[in-house]
Design a binder for these strands. Structure first.
Lengths: 145, 145
DNA sequence: GTAAGTGCAAATGTTTTGCCAGGTC
DNA sequence: GACCTGGCAAAACATTTGCACTTAC
């Protein structure tokens, strides 16, 4: 809990490679890219720095098909994923129109469907936060009853 | 590759419990629920049947926070996830309006953001499918270049 | 000099798989 | 009886973590 971190070469290269990559690499994929420049870097370091960069707001963590993918572009945008080859493309601009008509052809993709997820604080967690508590993020998960 | 499967008690119970569960259990969570009725069932069986039920279109596979979650409701709907406790609620009705205003309060949730993802076939995979080929789903992933 | 950060390896957690026994048609 | 399935345990992955050494500040 301090907020200050050092500017290491590893972190720098990780961020650079992620921002350069057109694809949305997984941690392991990015590890491969970074290793070309820093052959001794370890996978653990990549994971640790990605987590840090996400918390700093410098990169965005996505999630496709069970594995985490990272996006060096923090601008608000959506994604197009190919179910054939796994490729993920960016989609800028308001998706509202698209959602409405669910146009069959978007950026050359043949669209099969979409997934929309909102995230935030549920009523219980809002109460928990407001009423003293102090315990913010680490409440006991409300799992199946 | 047959298309027909037997109707086993395990599969039946798994589907029932999933449809009954208000939450969107993970495979392991569902395993716990099912085990109350079938104490000898194994986790592998739960996974195998879930995969089968997804392919049959009887259940929906979601994905939150790195783990797969399953939804017994196949109707088209979206989701609300609490970043505090991990709870996932259903959200029916057209989300278009919601997306537009990004109303701060949705079903009692304090909305912090959303994620929208389209999926389909990318241009390359469409071509690959149309031109002879036959090889449909298992093309080489277009990973980082 | 010192604490944050790294590399390495072992640990963790989730999902998949091989194999054989058992149930279903 | 053939063949789909289930149970079990091991394997395969992705990700996290403990620890001693390095390094940015």
């Amino acid at each position: 809990m301090n907020g200050f971190q050092r500017n290491t070469r590893q972190r720098q290269v990780i961020l650079e490679e992620l921002q350069r990559a057109a694809s949305h690499p997984t941690a392991v994929g990015l590890f491969g890219l970074v290793r070309r420049r820093l052959p001794k870097i370890s996978l653990g370091t990549v994971y640790r720095n990605l987590e840090l960069l996400v918390r700093m707001g410098a990169v965005q963590k996505l999630e496709f098909d069970g594995e985490a993918r990272f996006d060096g572009n923090v601008e608000r945008h959506d994604h197009l994923r190919c179910v054939g080859c796994g490729r993920v493309d960016d989609l800028f601009g308001p998706p509202l129109d698209l959602l409405g008509g669910e146009s069959d052809d978007l950026c050359g993709y043949e669209i099969l469907g979409h997934r929309l997820e909102f995230f935030g604080l549920c009523p219980a967690c809002r109460r928990r936060r407001n009423s003293g508590g102090g315990n913010g993020a680490t409440a006991a998960p409300t799992e199946e009853s």
